[in-house]
Design a protein around this nucleic acid. Structure first.
Lengths: 219, 219
DNA sequence: ACCTGAACACCGTTCAAGT
DNA sequence: ACCTGAACACCGTTCAAGT
């Protein structure tokens, strides 16, 4: 797995993407990346000013790969939905990447492809031009937030998961019906934040897009 | 600021909340907390099994404080909105707290108060009982994601912010109009993810609530 | 000119040894 | 019984000194 001296920026990014893909959840570090390249972490700092800059570049590269083979299909809502699922899939288990993307997006071709497709889909929706930038902004803020949040959930270990469920059960089932009547009433049906995230993602996005459509002037 | 030996769990939580409030963004650590208490970090591990458990307890306590003096006002949408703004304000600049809450909520009184109020507001909306738990789940997932994402944005330093804006400008203004026609068309109006977050938060939530209302069976 | 060893200033967590 | 010093196994980042 390790080679010897002189790595191009490209090769470093590829190795980083690979390491992020295979290393679990949270545990990516500059030092580990250097180790898999058979070099010292200090030499990576000639290629990148900081870990954030490195992650930003990797995020873009991952978006680029995720967009490979993408073809717009269906109406504007279906286009945005399938794009969103691709981005979600790409960042799925990687909170570090997802949150760096959510903080500032990135600036390479991958990001541009995503922006372009959302904007094109919104244009195809028949929304007036002047409403598109603000709708675009909300959609991408929403996507980035949901994806990063879900990626964060994926870092929870099985024991922590079990412990979290148990705490939730206690909080809900143990709630005093005098003080928390609604909570007591729905105790058996209410779900903790960490479960059913994929369904929640799709439904929240669908709701959001449906709302845009409903607010559209009739064409 | 530092006292001497034997701290109760309560006192530790208070000190942690205070330190999180005053320390900027990301920089809270168990060791710093111990230092402000005049003790060693190892002694805190008798009160908490892990940093996550500590943060979970602090998050609940902060929600509790945020709910202090809360009175439901207006219709169900206004109730959820003002609650959401309180939670947002409470976790505002604290990505560590916001993301620990988003991963599993917490299980104390603070969390229960938030759950109760959302459920009560949804009941007041006239939504049929069987739809309330799923609507509840989506609303809280959405809130937690947006709040954690925004808190993450707040960790960006001014230089990084400037650098991010510059990268965004280059990505957008420098996009080839042949390959990215929609991006080129909206280049001057499209905003990066890191700006206007408060407005985006309120509008995404308003859209979401309006959509629930629109999908409601006429009473 | 390029690279890197070693260091700086941190982390969360554990546990043997002390009081 | 309670507490803590010291250690373990890490971090991101810098920079003098080497090749």
């Amino acid at each position: 797995m390790a080679g010897r001296r002189r790595w191009s920026t490209e090769e470093i990014l590829d190795a980083a993407a690979e390491l992020l893909r295979t290393s679990s959840a949270d545990s990516f570090s500059v030092r580990k990346l250097a180790a898999t390249l058979g070099t010292d972490s200090s030499s990576l700092y000639r290629h990148f000013r900081s870990k954030t800059e490195l992650l930003r570049a990797v995020a873009d590269r991952i978006l680029l790969a995720a967009m490979d083979g993408y073809r717009p299909e269906g109406d504007w809502k279906q286009r945005i939905t399938s794009l969103a699922l691709r981005v979600r899939e790409a960042f799925g288990q990687q909170p570090q990447l997802a949150s760096v993307w959510g903080r500032y997006a990135s600036s390479g071709t991958g990001s541009r492809l995503v922006m372009e497709e959302v904007l094109q889909a919104l244009r195809a929706s028949g929304l007036p031009d002047e409403e598109i930038p603000v709708r675009y902004h909300r959609i991408v803020v929403l996507l980035a937030a949901l994806i990063a949040s879900e990626a964060g959930v994926s870092t929870v270990t099985p024991e922590e998961h079990e412990q979290g469920l148990e705490l939730f059960r206690v909080a809900v089932l143990g709630a005093d019906p005098e003080r928390f009547p609604a909570l007591a009433h729905f105790a058996r049906d209410v779900r903790p934040l960490g479960v059913d995230r994929r369904a929640a993602f799709e439904e929240i996005l669908a709701d959001h897009l449906a709302h845009i459509e409903a607010a559209m002037p009739p064409s």
